[in-house]
Design a protein around this nucleic acid. Sequence first.
RNA 1: GGCGACGUACCCAAGUGGCUAAGGGAGAAGUCUGCAAAACUUUCAUUCGGCGGUUCGAAUCCGCCCGUCGCCUCCA
Length: 481
Amino acid sequence: MSELHVYNTLTRKLEKYEPINPKQTKMYVCGPTVYGDSHLGHAKSYISFDLVFRWLKVAGFNPFYVQNITDVGHLVGDAEEGEDKIQKLSKELASEPMAIAEGFTKSYFDDMDRLNILRPHISPRATGHIPEQLEMIETLISKGFAYESNGSVYFDVKKFSSYGKLSGRKTDELQEGARVEIHEDKRNPLDFALWKKAEANHLMRWKSPFGVGFPGWHIECSAMSMKYLGESFDIHGGGLENQFPHHECEIAQSEAATGKHFVKYWLHNNMVTVNGEKMGKSKGNFVLVKDLFKTYDPMVIRFLVLSSHYRSPIDFSAEGLMSAQSGFERLMNMVGPVLKFEEGREEKPFTQKLILDWFEEFSEAMNDDFNSPRALAVVFNAVKTLNTNPELLVDGGLRSELPSFFRKTVGEVLGLLPENASGKSFEKELDSAMGLILELRTGFRQEKNWSKSDLIRDRLTSGGIVIEDGKEGSKWKIKGS
RNA sequence: GGCGACGUACCCAAGUGGCUAAGGGAGAAGUCUGCAAAACUUUCAUUCGGCGGUUCGAAUCCGCCCGUCGCCUCCA
């Protein structure tokens, strides 16, 4: 089998993946700031890293996955200078700020669960790691990389010579950019806050050696990733827009504090646009996944995201969604029935040539920087072959190994076969009832009583059950699964 | 102004030096069918934004030009 290669933003190259410890991969992904419901950007980002996580597992790298929840709230930009996003919402809703964060954290997990995104091993909260962040800040001060100023603490960018190595920026050029805000407490406009003094109206606040305040915008990721993954770890992921300044600052803080190389592979996913435009607050064109779920199966959203590479941008449009819906249905029209070939779930080793070839091609695609569009193409080629050669589906063909093949590729790796999480399922009962209905309808059809047989079909269709009449009798399936 | 990504059919999207340019969607015609659906067959880029160059050979490498998008400010 081919070897895994990943695109490392740090070196701007496709590199062979070699974890620091061959027995376990440690990965960290920047999680959401929980001040609102998840939108398509979150979906793309976390589906992308879920794919990475899933493939690392299947490929035997034994990943340990940490993804933070930022509930401290970052400062709001323009008008409400100095006001915390969560604080702002809590004022509007007359509620405890932690309750707001908690509510959106639940909402986030609920959305991600529906997209069949596996939970990270740890989802540490920023507010639960204030001591770790303070400890790191004090280390940075004692090593001379940070300074206290008027109740706040700033990182002294000039002291860290390789600042800019991830984003390819030069500090002198940045200063000319004029968009860097000049702050009188800072020695240098590029210096970033590690700790901010809390104004009187600031609700989320903690005691610190520097006075009452709250942590800066980048420190939580450094403190939490190093706490759970060590001072050097393998993979750090996040959205492209976080490359600068967020990840650049993380590197500076972490490497200044430990003197060690922070992260071996930096992975960045590209962004979502909506009808060709950046999705943003100012444009008012946020697409919330909860809204999409009202019309589309979450797996259709997942399929859409996987049908382009994680480093490519996705332009979101109604046509794209419909195309994904049709494509996903085509896939499931084969995979669904195949999974019913066997009762058990035991994994069968692949021995048959065709299946081995398919899996080899699939693995090659995934090993090529998690190339999900190519992996999907492999699966579709398999579907085509099976549709064209129905003898492969019966005993003596590929029947015994096909369920495992699809469960592994479409299920385990691509995550397009969610387990029914709701627990109790009425599959047996439904089977029996549908069997009776189809029997009755077959009777009408034999009597050429088309009006009754069509009435049954139409009513079932509008209720989400599709009837298909074939040579060997009628079949039914739940729409879209 | 600085940094970066990208431009492949009607739409989405792989392919980054060499067999007939993957795959999905939409469209068209047909097979099957009471009809429908599904599936299948055929069709759908002699050509990869444009112009030059390197090479026996380029969508793939180089140069210039045009265009789109993102980042540089909280953002996945």
